[in-house]
Computed example of a mutant assay.
Amino acid sequence: MITTDPVPGTPCWLDLGAPDVPAAAAFYGSVLGWEYEAMEAGDAGETGGGGEEMEGGMFRKDGKIVAGLGKLTEAGARSAWMIYYSVEDVDATTRAVEQAGGKVRVAPMDLDEWGRMAQFTDPLGGQFAAWQPGTNSGVELVDAPGSLSWTELYTTDAAAAKRFYTDVLGWWYSDMELPGGGGTYSLVTPAGLAEERMQGGIMGMRAEDLTLNSGKPYWHPVFDVDDCDAAVARVKANGGTVQMGPDDAEGVGRLAVCVDPSNADFVLLTPEKP
């Protein structure tokens, strides 16, 4: 499970780069019941890697911050969710990424007193980020309806991806075979924590199946919802599409893989009741 305890190697923040910020705010407000709070000039997090001002803000659920939203400004980039993992030292993490064959997308930078961040690309093409907490340790609500409950990587080489993230973030894994010959799914747990704190999964897939990202690996978030079918109906009613589901997954719950109107993917999950 994901918690708000910023243990190194755990997901602590996520934000969406969208070509139309008001439209994205309206979509996720309708689907997940989020409230959008635009950031005022001078707030931390309002500038991009080059220091330019950018449109953006925070999503809240029941008054608690659950995600960020910003204007997609990178030429040729697709709209997507970026997942940040808590680290003790962003600069050391950056060196570990480079030593393990990854690339630095955004060099380490301070966001006022909030913390220090950097963004990376793993050797296979999956993009992720690291956050060194300052006064802000990350999102305020997780593992509850309308919030992040899991993270997932679709990659073309699961074994290589697992080695990389172990070297960089210290993860360990437990593998499970998917029913019907669906392949192997690797469950991710941060170093030093028990399986109860597993936070995500890594799934090997063929490049031709990764159509959203032109055959390259990508991370996406899983959001907890009270009623997956009702949430999927809201996705469709607000211009989104559904790649898979809703389907029941034994031991997991009812889930659907969705895409918002700007082509950013995410998963909706109603957890199976004990």
Rank of each mutant, 00 (worst) to 15 (best):
A77L: 01
L269N: 11
E177T: 14
A92E: 04
P271Y: 12
G201K: 11
T184Y: 08
P6W: 02
L124A: 13
E113M: 12
E196P: 06
Y218M: 06
W172G: 14
D248I: 07
S30L: 07
E37N: 05
P145Y: 00
A44Y: 12
N213D: 05
G170C: 12
A44N: 10
V106P: 01
F59Q: 14
A23T: 11
V259F: 07
F128P: 12
D15I: 14
D62V: 06
A158E: 10
A77S: 10
K273L: 05
Q132M: 10
T156W: 05
G182P: 05
G182L: 02
Y36V: 04
W172E: 15
K103G: 00
G68E: 07
A158S: 14
A231P: 03
P19N: 07
E196G: 09
D175I: 09
G126R: 13
Q199N: 08
S147E: 08
P108T: 12
Q119C: 15
E88P: 15
H220D: 07
L212P: 11
G57F: 07
D157W: 13
D175Y: 05
G126D: 06
F223C: 11
P6K: 01
A129V: 02
W150C: 02
W114P: 00
G63M: 11
P179H: 07
R254Y: 07
G49Y: 04
A237S: 08
M117H: 02
M54Q: 13
R78I: 13
G134W: 06
M176A: 15
R78Y: 08
G17Y: 04
Q132W: 04
I2H: 12
D91Y: 01
A25K: 12
G253L: 02
L124M: 12
